[in-house]
Amino acid sequence: MSEDKKPATNTLGLTKSDYKGGPSTMCKGCGHDRISEAIIQASYDLGLDATNILKMSGIGCSSKTPAYFLGNAMGLNSTHGRMPSFATGAHIANTSMTPIGVSGDGDSASIGMGQFVHILRRNPKMVYIIENNGVYGLTKGQFSATADRQSPSKRGAYPREESIDLCGLALELGATFVSRSFSGDKKQLVPLLKAALSFDGLSFIDVISPCVTFNNHEGSTKSYTHQKEMGVTFHDPYYVSPQDPIDIEYEQGELREVTLHDGSKLLLRKLEHDFDPTDRNASFDAIQRTRNKGEVLTGLIHIDVEARSMSSNSGLTDQPLSMLAQQELRPASGVLDRINDSFRI
């Protein structure tokens, strides 16, 4: 009996609470907290060593959340819209560390659009989460660039500008892991996060994350209700780590299987409709088709396991640059004499 009371542990012998952070200061019911929980769950399940994770964020309610998960990981809460550059620098200084970048729709789709676009092109190995609520939560409810034209504010005003579909944009920019999820759908978000952490490249997850205070009212297209009604998905994802057997139930021909770089697998069980997410054109088509119907497509939208990350392609030494010693950094004595001689007149 007393034996049973002991909390469960993962492969590292850690409990789930070892993956928690400090107490959240989000509004009660904020979608962002559900995402933190999903990160904790995914990390626990994977047996992740949090000291190999760098939590990176920009500015916004969403960007505050790294304080509320993985308390044993180092983190950096940077400036508004600049998480991508800080994450790139930190990761390249030590490629054995994987950044989990957390950003908001304001942080990435407006002020940080430049950095968002370019980090997708650069493709470092990291997880890039946008906690997308269609508003600026922290500055109290202004429209963000992902607010839909037909989605009114609490006061009944409508956005005057087109909204940006972050997944469509990421695809356009050649991103190799593009997904969308919903903070209220842990069954989908957790396996996506696990796959994202196993992927060698930038894995982008656009998570619809309702702001209960400023954008969860009737008519809002970023509300819990709207997402439950209009969210569609074509596959149920299951993550299987390299050492585990495949133990989900499925029928013949029902399963797509993607093998990730560390040997783990992402299994996609087909639902009513199907498409091949490794085919970029099919991915574009899936986004367009659902959007035209006013639906919000979630799930793994595109994956390309052939392309490799910036760090894998960089030709860098395996030893972290941050740990190189003087004798590896400063040229040997005599080299400067040679250089000086080459400038002799």
């Binding site: 940077s78 991508p84 550059s85 790139t88 200084a93 030590n94 430049g114 650069r122």
Partner: peptide, 23 residues
């Protein structure tokens, strides 16, 4: 590693990110 950044906002962000990480 030498990275030609997309602008100076990113260049200093990368430099600081790397400095923070110990390089």
């Amino acid at each position: 590693v030498v990275i030609q950044a997309e602008d100076e906002l990113a260049a200093i962000g990368m430099a600081l990110g790397a400095g923070w990480a110990g390089a």
